[in-house]
Amino acid sequence: MILLTHLYDLFLSFCRIGLVAFGGGYAMIPLMRAEFIMARQWLTLGEFLDIIAIAEMTPGPVAINAATYIGYKVAGIPGAAAATLGVITPSVVLILIIAGLFQHFRSSLLVRAIISGIRPAVIGLILSAVLVLGRPVLVDFKAFFISLAAFLLLITGKIRPLPVIGLASLLGLLLY
């Protein structure tokens, strides 16, 4: 049964991602790339970028949207369910365990020490994802322009991600 092993793989992959993704959805991008483009080769770089865009454009947590989409693409509706359950399971289990120890957990030196190492590492990982994902995409002047314009609009706080993607899709229609 290829499908069953796929479901199992999807669930485990997303569990692993959910377990180490400190910093929310964006922290998952380099992990998903390592898992689904490099290790398992379920997606191409282009497909992955499309999925991130679709996850941003649809309501709900971006991480859940991306997990559901990738799961669906790999193994249909059961795959979507396996991936979504996988990515939320670590959150649910960890929080139910630590919720009782609320104050203790937050002020724990051990937890703070671990997070103080992981947070900056995640930034380095996302930066490397930008370069890896950007290389095959930024192939002409137009693409470079769209990318830079999106970055500048977001960084100056002028426009939120959703309208930026809307603008970019218009530019795609006009320029290509």
Binding site: Y26, I29, G46, L49, D50, I52, A53, E56, I126, L127, A129, V130, L133, G134, V137, L138, A143, F144, I146, S147, L148, A149, A150, F151, L154, I155, P161, V164, I165, L167, A168, S169, L170, L171, G172, L173, L175, Y176
Partner: peptide
């Protein structure tokens, strides 16, 4: 449409 969206997503992740 996605020829335009892909580079914007790269910009979004850089952000």
């Amino acid at each position: 449409v996605f020829m335009g969206i892909r580079p914007a997503v790269v910009g979004l992740i850089a952000y």
